[in-house]
């Protein structure tokens, strides 16, 4: 088995008597996008700061690419790219100077810098802004520039702390698409957010943290299954649906069928009956399907069920 890119074991972070993170453990294998979810003050940023080598005092064993963060932080820094939840600007630099500044800080050979900077600007669609002052860029562009910065040294792990915070809808979508591209490039990504539906489409696994403790960790399907959350499927039929509804209620896996004026709302237990089989069952029951629409998994429900609204 290959070594996970991130390995956190019994991590505890304290600020004086206040325990921000209480002995949490998790692992992130290579190529995964791990969503770190939790309310404000839950301990997400403290955990990410430990991984980013910005937290000097902590307990537990934290490894990045097999390297102990406590013992070899300098080497760890070469493996990670960190985007904090704010965009600290050097307002006196242009986008080009900003990226060259960090290319030099990451120790890229000077003859390679121009090509690398051009590449990351193209990837983040900022080439046309190369000679603009960083301070003059919009918030979304600044966030993309931040991503461009962390890609300069081609890190194995990206640590993104609330990257979509404060962005407008367009910038959020652009950011999501960019992250998908990075996922396809095989980057391992740890992304924190409290905007749940954004992570639902992106993450391969999530960890839900509250009051410094990890309350759930796994793939979305795993978590939904364990929480016994049901998916709602909306079906619109030609003609009356009572008979079909009565037939469907006999199927194992159909928890409930609500007959509404224009549709049937079916609550489905996916572990017992898949969506495809449900569709077949509707047709078999004589239903002439006009619309068949499974609702997206409701992460907000899962989050509310798992957390109690407390902070550490």
């Amino acid at each position: 088995m290959t070594e996970p890119v991130v390995s956190v074991r019994a991590l505890k972070v304290s600020y004086g008597k206040f325990e921000a993170v209480k002995r949490i453990s998790f692992e992130i294998p290579k190529g995964e996008v791990f969503g770190f979810i939790g309310p404000n003050g839950a301990g997400k940023s403290s955990t990410i700061r430990v991984l980013a080598t910005l937290q000097r005092k902590f307990e537990g064993v934290v490894k990045v690419c097999g390297l102990d963060v406590r013992r070899r932080p300098a080497t760890v820094r070469e493996k990670i790219g960190y985007v904090p939840d704010f965009f600290g600007v050097y307002e006196d630099l242009t986008a080009r100077e900003y990226l060259h500044f960090f290319a030099a800080a990451y120790g890229l050979p000077s003859h390679r810098r121009k090509a690398v900077v051009d590449d990351v600007l193209e990837l983040t669609d900022l080439t046309h802004k190369i000679d603009f002052q960083v301070d003059s860029l919009s918030r979304g562009m600044k966030q993309r520039l931040s991503l461009a910065r962390v890609l300069l040294h081609d890190p194995e792990l990206l640590l993104l702390d609330e990257p979509a915070s404060g962005l407008d809808p367009r910038a959020r979508i652009e950011m999501r698409e960019l992250l998908k591209a990075l996922k396809e490039m095989g980057k391992t990504i740890l992304i924190s957010s409290h905007i749940l539906h954004e992570l639902a489409n992106l993450c391969t696994r999530i960890g839900i943290i509250e009051a410094g403790q990890l309350v759930a960790e796994g793939s979305l399907d795993d978590i939904f299954r364990r929480l016994e959350l049901m998916r709602v499927v909306h079906v619109q039929l030609a003609g009356a649906g009572e008979a079909v509804a009565a037939d469907l209620r006999q199927h194992e896996g159909v928890a409930d069928v609500d007959v509404q004026s224009d549709r049937l709302s079916i609550r489905l237990r996916e572990d017992l009956l898949s969506i495809e089989d449900l569709h077949a069952a509707v047709v078999a029951a004589g239903g002439r399907v006009r619309m068949f629409q499974p609702e997206a998994m409701d992460m907000e429900t899962a989050f509310m069920k798992l957390t109690e609204g407390v902070t550490a």
Binding site: E78, I80, Y82, P84, G88, F102
Partner: peptide, 11 residues
């Protein structure tokens, strides 16, 4: 300016 953390995560 909140730029210190970013600088400190460079090698």
């Amino acid at each position: 300016r909140q730029s210190l953390d970013v600088l400190l995560t460079t090698p």
